[in-house]
Design a protein around this nucleic acid. Structure first.
Lengths: 236, 236
DNA sequence: TGTACATCAGTGAACGCGCGTTCACTGATGTAC
DNA sequence: TGTACATCAGTGAACGCGCGTTCACTGATGTAC
């Protein structure tokens, strides 16, 4: 039964994949706004109306691409950290940053889709939230681990101790973030972790969107340097 | 003669302004990709072909908008700093950051136009470079001033001294940047200044593009905190 | 100050193209007995 | 194992809309004498 079901279902799964793949190709040429169901259908050799058997509208296809992009990126970050269980927190932080940047350089248009300008008229549904959180969760885990291991090398890492207590409402926001992804970690360290997080994506956006041209381009060296500086800044 | 010339010329200048203004309005609804000469003409009550007397193509109109956006932002940053000649460097750094963010919040679509995803198929011409550099020049000036005044409060600002020498090719890139906008300032401080610069725009992009939602949103408090942390980090 | 000519703004029709979505339909695949 | 029926993938035409750009043109504004 499950095998015979699969005859049709497998064809459906396959075509769904092909549609998304072709859509990703179009993203690269025309951006999210240029994503066209008709063009996808044309490229796949089917009637434009047939796409509607797979995605009820253009926006649903866009949502599927966004979720896939977040998951693909999140998975890369998770694997980069998980692959180095014996490495220190700083090394895993660096590996995570490299993984995120590597993914972005390999998939610049999907990066732009999720971290670039919002698509006019498109509202991301709630289902995108969990995939979108995966990288933050990875980094939160590193913060937690680093905090839990404090004292062992406290001399090297005065880190967050330099920061005064957070002003409201940032203190509350940091507490909420900590509760979600880095329990036990004190507010100032969470806030600095958020700064490092913003720095990571800020750098990648600058690099991909061409703001470094004539300055820190190629950006490899600056990226590596900054990742190290941020590790120290956060107190990892 | 110059007054009679102006009769026609003034009309031309006026309409040019109106076209750009209407184009900016459209940017807000449909993004750069949705910018349509026909729609601009329609809204202005003129034939679509008439626009071509003012802008030879859609991309030229886009270029004009980009240059205006960079100039508008750059001017705001310059004024924020110039308006506080007696303030300390840190206060002027903060004023500059506030000005940039304030402009971005007031002009989110123009911000996205210059710091968001690149417009597919559009290549920014060289004329956009000088306007695009204005904020960096302001910040470079603050670095220079701070460095020149070193020693006076050196106790508070170990700053860049903590950083080791820069690895190549970052050392060279930093030297080029320093030569352009912050002469005399040593490489590590330039690199940290660049980090702060990236942080500033990274934060604003996160805020405007919705990445803070559910975390540090509203972002005022986090922004203020980060601007202070960055001042210390750079050693201002 | 007045006239003849050149410049330029703006028109409206046309070219050739694109899009998302709906709908009635054909024909193949899957299911229940 | 075979038949009757339901499900579903895919078609092709249509609706109503949009776009950038070109071109021959009219008529007003500006200039040189």
């Amino acid at each position: 039964m499950s095998a015979s079901q699969t005859a049709r279902q497998r064809a459906r799964a396959e075509l769904t994949r092909e549609i998304k793949q072709e859509a990703r190709r179009q993203l690269a040429h025309d951006g999210p706004q240029g994503l066209s169901l008709r063009a996808v259908a044309r490229e796949l050799g089917m009637a434009s109306s047939a796409i509607y058997r797979y995605f009820p509208s253009r926006d649903d296809l866009l949502t599927a691409l966004i979720i896939e992009a977040y998951n693909s990126l999140g998975e890369r970050a998770e694997q980069a950290v998980a692959a180095r269980p014996r490495a220190g927190v700083r090394d895993r932080w660096a590996a995570c940053c490299d993984a995120v940047r590597g993914w972005a350089l390999q998939n610049p248009h999907e990066y732009a889709l999720i971290y670039g300008s919002p698509v006019p008229g498109y509202q991301a549904p709630q289902e995108t939230v969990p995939p979108a959180s995966r990288v933050a969760i990875v980094i939160g885990g590193l913060l937690s681990e680093s905090w839990a291991a404090r004292g062992e090398d406290a001399g090297d890492n005065p880190g967050p101790a330099r920061s005064p207590a957070l002003p409201p409402p940032l203190d509350q926001q940091a507490a909420v973030i900590a509760a979600a992804i880095a329990p036990e970690v004190p507010g100032p360290m969470v806030a600095r972790g958020l700064i490092a997080f913003v720095q990571l994506f800020g750098m990648i956006s600058f690099e991909l969107f061409g703001q470094f041209v004539g300055g820190a381009d190629p950006a490899d060296s600056f990226f590596r340097f900054t990742v190290g500086e941020m590790a120290e800044f956060v107190g990892l």
